[in-house]
């Protein structure tokens, strides 16, 4: 009897430390933030001294042009980088999914950018984009072109390029893994059925990779909404608000404007957005599982 009881509780005992850490490191600050978002809160104040203001912070933000601009910048940034990364990453994977000499070295080189710390990536690109001494403009000038004010006039585009450079490898390796797990014989059957290389990609490879690609895209989208370091280092959100993504605006609201309550409310908006994406991802995986289970059941009922 005693042994049975111990058996039943063993898994929970093993899980307890992780749950405890999750509670302290994640749930507590989260609750703190939600609580704080309903209050008028200056960093010099203790939270108990702050005044409850209801939904005021949320409503203010909703009508705040700067916040809306920041939200728009974030959306443009996230959607553009993920779309471009998908296109390039999947394209590269389709190109490199073959056995030729040196391919494994090439693959390793391709995923290097992902392994560099974001701050370093930001610094690197800032120097490359530098109007006078940057690599890019110097190259342009040596070829007789005019230099471009990358981080001035084209700040958002330049930031987007840097993010694409860093994160395309992520999509690349996942797409490559998906490609290599495709049933080889189905592709051979397609070749015998008369599919050209393009037709194999569009009718066989891409449809079969789709489940992986959808989840990958959502993962990247969630990440792209939270991007901070690279942009912080490259432009600090400027010029103007042109590259001020939400994460940056939150940090500025908290430190520069000293409005912790508003910053918390802003964080919650971002959190809701990410929750929706996560929920979408969850629903998609559940649907896939359900479909597989339904099909398997159909076979079982017949036999």
């Amino acid at each position: 009897m005693n042994g049975q009881l111990a058996n039943r509780f063993t898994p929970y005992i093993f899980m307890a430390p992780a749950v405890l850490i999750m509670g302290i490191a994640l749930l507590y600050p989260l609750g703190y933030m939600v609580y704080g978002s309903f209050r008028e809160w200056n960093p010099s104040q203790n939270i108990s001294e702050t005044e409850f203001v209801g939904l005021k912070n949320y409503i203010t933000l909703f009508f705040d042009a700067a916040f809306r601009e920041s939200l728009a910048v974030t959306l443009i940034f996230a959607v553009t980088v993920v779309a471009a990364e998908l296109f390039i990453g999947v394209g590269l994977a389709l190109l490199l999914d073959r056995n030729i000499r040196g391919m494994s070295l090439l693959r390793t080189l391709f995923i290097l950018p992902m392994m560099i710390a974001p701050v370093v990536v930001g610094l690197m690109w800032r120097y490359m984009y530098h109007p006078t001494v940057g690599t890019i403009n110097r190259t342009l000038k040596s070829m007789g072109f005019e230099g471009v004010d990358w981080l001035g006039q084209h700040a958002l585009a330049s930031v987007i390029v840097a993010d694409i450079w860093q994160w395309t490898p992520f999509i690349f390796i996942l797409a490559l893994a998906a490609l290599q797990s495709l049933p080889r014989s189905a592709l051979e059957a397609a070749r015998i059925d008369g599919a050209t290389a393009w037709q194999q990609i569009f009718y066989i490879k891409l449809p079969l990779m789709m489940p992986v690609l959808i989840v990958t895209a959502l993962l990247r989208l969630i990440d792209a909404f939270k991007v901070l370091e690279v942009i912080l280092v490259m432009t600090q959100g400027g010029p103007g608000l042109s590259t001020e993504i939400l994460a940056l605006r939150i940090s500025r609201t908290a430190t520069e404007f000293r409005e912790l309550g508003v910053a918390a409310a802003m964080s919650n908006y971002l959190l809701i957005l990410l929750l929706l994406l996560t929920l979408g991802m969850f629903v998609i995986t559940r649907l896939q599982e359900k479909r597989a289970a339904r099909l398997a059941k159909m076979v079982q009922e017949e036999s």
Partner: peptide, 20 residues
């Protein structure tokens, strides 16, 4: 010649159906 230019049909061991 490419497989498709040879005008033949093939049945595979693992059926090689298109799952989608």
């Amino acid at each position: 010649l490419e497989p498709k230019e040879r005008g033949l049909a093939m049945v595979f061991q693992d059926y090689a159906l298109y799952p989608h």
